[in-house]
């Protein structure tokens, strides 16, 4: 965690994508060129309907669901990174789609609970004023 940004009166953490990779001990599958991008927050869900309904400016999606809709959903929500947990392995088709959409994809051996806990402990939190995600 390197930088704090200020929105209104509240400070919140910025985290770089490469820091997320390091914290989760994750394997990068595509999107090497975006590793220095900043994210403010993350969400975790296997239900893409909920991601579409509740996500607001979270840059990272942590999920154990593996299908192309994960990438399309992340793209629709302007998310820049998807972490597949529990060693779930996306197909070549999914990786190609992520490349087309400019989304970083990683794979972690961690369970979703552990991945969220590590990122939260490292400072990645919810955005100020966001009560839903």
């Amino acid at each position: 965690m390197t930088v704090f940004a200020v929105r209104g009166r509240m400070e919140f953490a910025l985290m770089k994508i490469h820091e997320i990779k390091e914290i989760l001990g994750a394997e990068l599958l595509c999107g090497d060129e975006s590793m220095d991008s900043d994210v403010y927050s993350a969400c975790c869900s296997d239900m893409m309907s909920d991601v579409l309904a509740y996500v607001k400016d979270q840059g990272v999606l942590i999920t154990g669901l593996v299908n192309p809709q994960v990438i399309r959903t992340a793209s629709m929500m302007d998310m820049i990174c998807v972490v597949f947990v529990r060693s779930k392995t996306p197909s070549d088709e999914i990786i190609k789609l992520a490349n087309d959409c400019g989304i970083v994809v990683m794979r972690s051996t961690l369970r979703a609970f552990e991945a969220c806990g590590l990122l939260y402990t490292a400072g990645l939190s919810r955005l100020p004023g966001d009560r839903n995600a």
């Binding site: 893409m48 309907s49 909920d50 579409l52 309904a53 299908n67 809709q69």
Partner: peptide, 23 residues
């Protein structure tokens, strides 16, 4: 919100939470 007629085979794909039309 939350009403859905989607079957289980759709829910396991991450959809069918009854949020589509409200969203």
């Amino acid at each position: 919100e939350g009403y859905s007629t989607a079957r289980e085979n759709i829910r396991v794909l991450g959809f069918g939470a009854g949020m589509g039309l409200p969203n």
